[in-house]
């Protein structure tokens, strides 16, 4: 049997490369933790889940509106911030 020409192989590899790049460009992928073997679609529910907080609100959940005291005086309310667009909400503690 005659072996397939080498250019066909190269073409196939290039095609594969191009298609993976396009697929990856469609949505961002990150590793959920530094030890994770795979980068996941960050829009997925499993990407940001944590075993330590099994009941944390997930993708698609509607978060409760809040109004809490603000550092420096006054208060900050989610419904006001939402009027302007998307809102990033960070729960922070120490750096450890």
């Amino acid at each position: 049997m005659k072996p397939a020409p080498i250019w066909l192989g190269i073409f196939a590899i290039q095609l594969a490369l191009v298609s993976t790049v396009t697929a990856e460009d469609e949505y961002p992928r990150y590793k959920p933790s530094s030890g994770s073997p795979l980068a996941l679609d960050i829009r997925s529910n499993s990407y940001g889940a944590s075993r330590d907080a099994p009941h944390a609100l997930g993708i698609g959940a509607v978060v409760p509106d809040f109004e809490v005291p603000k550092v420096g005086g006054g208060s900050v309310s989610l419904d006001k911030l939402r009027e302007q667009g998307s809102v990033v909400i960070v729960f922070y503690r120490g750096h450890w």
Binding site: S34, G48, A49
Partner: peptide, 26 residues
């Protein structure tokens, strides 16, 4: 007494379209 480190991004209607709870911080 503490929160676990977490980041949420919500849309104008308050629905979550991104979240990262615990582990590696984004």
């Amino acid at each position: 007494e503490l929160a676990i480190h977490a980041v949420y991004i919500v849309d104008k209607d308050g629905s979550v379209f991104y979240r990262k709870v615990g582990r590696r911080r984004p």
